[in-house]
């Protein structure tokens, strides 16, 4: 038993273990701006509001630059190795639609909306600056040939875009976080920004 006592002392001194707790990276993608009355939006303010939404994980997660959809507020890579596939809808047999249907599933927590898919690779935003994202959004070469008018329609009417404000619950039944402003405020900001010619501040 003597030996055991010795061991006890040695080991309690010796062996310390630090937990590898993978804490989620801080969310710095969008900037907090003071509350403003939407009606009094300047073009620049509207731009900031729009970009805050676009950079929110609810939007950004499906605009990857590495072909891998992201999940959650920590924007981790989609589990199980899912990626873009040939038509932005997953692989030939296991597609986005294998799990994602036209509406959120409140039993499983799997999100869903019409034409659930990744944004085209040309519309990858992840890792880009706000102004780079805006440029990709506005450039018909990258945005699928959309005019400003068509962009406004897309951004204020497309059901997959607007899913961001109806994001359902996660696998644990907890409601997903929505973008920083309401759907109505977003629509107004989009309209205002495009009304003003969609200027991209150079900073």
């Amino acid at each position: 038993m003597n030996r055991i006592v010795v061991l006890l002392v040695i080991f309690s001194l010796g062996a310390f273990y630090l937990i590898g707790s993978n804490k989620e990276p801080p969310l710095e993608a969008y900037t907090v701006i003071p509350e403003v009355k939407i009606d009094s939006l300047t073009a620049e303010r509207a731009y900031e509001e729009v970009m805050n939404v676009l950079m929110h994980p609810r939007c950004m997660n499906c605009h990857p630059t590495d072909d891998i959809p992201k999940q959650g507020m920590d924007r981790h890579p989609h589990y199980f190795g899912m990626s873009r596939g040939k038509e932005n809808k997953g692989f030939s047999a296991t597609k986005c639609a294998t799990c994602h249907q036209e509406a959120n599933n409140l039993n499983s927590g799997v999100p869903g909306a019409p034409h659930w898919s990744l944004a085209p690779a040309s519309m990858g935003w992840q890792g880009l600056s706000r102004s780079e994202i805006a440029q990709r959004l506005l450039d018909p070469e990258t945005n699928g040939g959309k005019s400003h008018k068509e962009l406004v329609t897309h951004m204020t009417e497309d059901e997959l875009v607007l899913w961001a404000w109806n994001p359902g619950v996660d696998a644990n039944g907890i409601p997903r976080k929505k973008p920083p402003i309401s759907e109505e405020e977003f629509k107004k900001a989009v309209e205002k920004w495009f009304d003003e010619g969609a200027p991209v501040p150079s900073k």
């Binding site: 589990y79 296991t94 799990c99 249907q101 599933n105 499983s108 799997v110």
Partner: peptide, 26 residues
């Protein structure tokens, strides 16, 4: 029940679907 394991996979109109996460209305 979370479309994570695939044990519930069946076909709907020839496409693989995880049926635990597929509302019957569809």
């Amino acid at each position: 029940g979370k479309a994570a394991c695939g044990a519930c996979t069946l076909h709907v109109d020839g496409e693989a679907v995880r049926s635990c996460s597929y509302a019957v209305k569809f």
